[in-house]
């Protein structure tokens, strides 16, 4: 076949500039084209709209019991804590906790009887039991994850087992004494 090459000495700069500009523009085009393809993977407008804040009425929850509900596809526990459970959660020696956090940092001031936490184990995402009456609450009277044996206390903090961190608290606010808005 034809080994056709011009002598490399002739006007290398202008040729290189042209080739460089063409190549750069092509690369930029490919990158720009990739953007919309990747962006289609983001949550769509309907998913985002459905993830708007929700309001929860607390009146039907008896003391010592809890409910489960979904927000943005994630399970959330709301528990009405008894006096004994609150005291138990407050008097723990923080230094002994795997993930030290004071109980006061996990509830709203003046509403210590209400605990609102995400309900999926921080180990590998199973759902710990203990919300409904009769479910095993574990060694610390909170929640117990049956998958790998993580024990959470009455503040939702990890006390024993493989889970690395406490059950996180979702963003929420009290609208009245008996109503909260999550999100």
């Amino acid at each position: 076949m034809a080994e056709a090459k011009s002598s490399p000495a002739s006007e290398p700069t202008r040729r290189d500039m042209l080739f460089l500009a063409t190549g750069a523009m092509g690369a930029a085009g490919v990158v720009a084209l990739a953007v919309p393809f990747v962006r289609t993977l983001a949550p769509n407008a309907q998913t985002i709209a459905a993830g708007a804040p929700i309001e929860v009425d607390l009146t039907p929850i008896p003391e010592g019991q809890g409910i489960k509900l979904f927000w943005r596809g994630k399970l959330i526990f709301v528990r009405s804590r008894t006096k004994a459970e609150i005291e138990e959660a407050q008097k723990v020696n923080l230094a002994s906790l795997p993930d030290p956090q004071a109980d006061s940092a996990r509830v709203k001031p003046g509403k210590e009887n209400w605990l609102v936490i995400y309900g999926s184990c921080t180990h590998l995402g199973c759902i710990p039991g203990g919300s409904a009456a009769g479910e095993v609450r574990g060694d610390y009277n909170g929640w117990f994850c049956p998958c790998h044996g993580s024990h959470y206390d009455t503040s939702g903090r990890i006390r024993k087992g493989p889970a690395p961190t406490n059950l996180p608290v979702p963003p929420y606010a009290f609208l009245s004494d008996t109503k909260i808005r999550i999100g």
């Binding site: 034809a2 080994e3 056709a4 090459k5 011009s6 040729r15 042209l18 080739f19 500009a21 063409t22 523009m25 092509g26 085009g29």
Partner: peptide, 24 residues
Amino acid sequence: FAGLLYFTKKRIWSRLPEHAPGAA
């Protein structure tokens, strides 16, 4: 981009023998 490619193409094709007599 098409404009740039056009000139690049012209430049590359100018190496062909009928345009550059005497090339190997």
